[in-house]
Design a protein around this nucleic acid. Sequence first.
DNA 1: GTCTATACGCGGATAGAC
DNA 2: GTCTATCCGCGTATAGAC
Lengths: 203, 203
Amino acid sequence: MSGSTSTTRDNILNVASELYASKGYTAVSMRDVAAVVGVTPANLYHHFKDKECLIRAALAQVFGERTAPLETLLLAQASPAQQFDCFIDWFVRLVFDDTIFSRLLTRELLDGTPERLRYLTQTVFDRPISLLTQVMRARPSDADPVLSVISVTSIILGHRQLAAALPHLREGKADYADTQILIEHLKALLCRAFTGVPDAGRV
Amino acid sequence: MSGSTSTTRDNILNVASELYASKGYTAVSMRDVAAVVGVTPANLYHHFKDKECLIRAALAQVFGERTAPLETLLLAQASPAQQFDCFIDWFVRLVFDDTIFSRLLTRELLDGTPERLRYLTQTVFDRPISLLTQVMRARPSDADPVLSVISVTSIILGHRQLAAALPHLREGKADYADTQILIEHLKALLCRAFTGVPDAGRV
DNA sequence: GTCTATACGCGGATAGAC
DNA sequence: GTCTATCCGCGTATAGAC
């Protein structure tokens, strides 16, 4: 942040994020990380006190970096309806295109300690949910606004989670893997769910 | 199933399911399982060739056991609309009340090998999705029926996943943890999403 | 079926030289 | 900042007695 950060430290964080995301924390040893970075295990312990410390730093980097753009993106939208669509676009893409982010997110929701879950919630979920709740309040839906926003987030996360099973589904078609098709499907579905009218207030 | 199964084997499977669900496969050693069961590690290797073999057996037991009732349950419903409601009820309860099932499910979707994902899909998802797809085809929605069923499943799984973060949410209320409230919320939301009319065709 | 004993490599972590 | 060398407990898995 101050401009004089060691490159090795960043390399470690990037490698660690990727390995943790793909194999899980316990399955990835400090030796593994060191080997991929191209340094010795002892060197890792120079940069990070212990494994837990490395994990936290990797999570902070990934979650902080990836969610930073949203605030600006949402505030640039003219209307609540556009903010809503904008969020769906952004979150679907983030969660489907950035496997490091989405896999670390799932791992934290599954195995994170209460303390780490608190950090995760504040970094990833608090702002978006707070902003979108305002959007929901302006809708004709009589459902609980916060619960509705949670549903929107849930359906996107759920689709990402289920994507792993879709290729093995008997009924499945190939284009379920297409992010753009999913986005359109979700926008239409959620619009109906929260207004009762397809394409209400849309271009 | 044949009545002459060793009790120790079943104990091992039950203990393994629980430990794997709560901590993950790599974090649970054969020693751990043996210790909780109350036998020696060597004894585990008498019943299960290796760790992978124990994992598979535990998964097969949990997924097979928990999903068995659905077939009968759905076929006992009079109308497609009732099948739909029935599924939501059943799946939300399964996923929220049976943490062993839901956590193992998440772990498999996240880290399962293609082979294990194929097994999981056929055990847990294929039948329900196939049956519910028929229900969706009868609805006035113009959305892809299979994609819609995936959305229904996704929103439930997603809510389960997010539940871990809700207690740390600033906007959160206490009753988001109430399964019954969630069920009603989802039924209303999904009914609107797929018919455009709240409570259409409902009692 | 269940035990004791053990092989052997991997894991986190540290000391101290350069 | 990075290395070599090392400690020590844990992990999977096996051999062979009871």
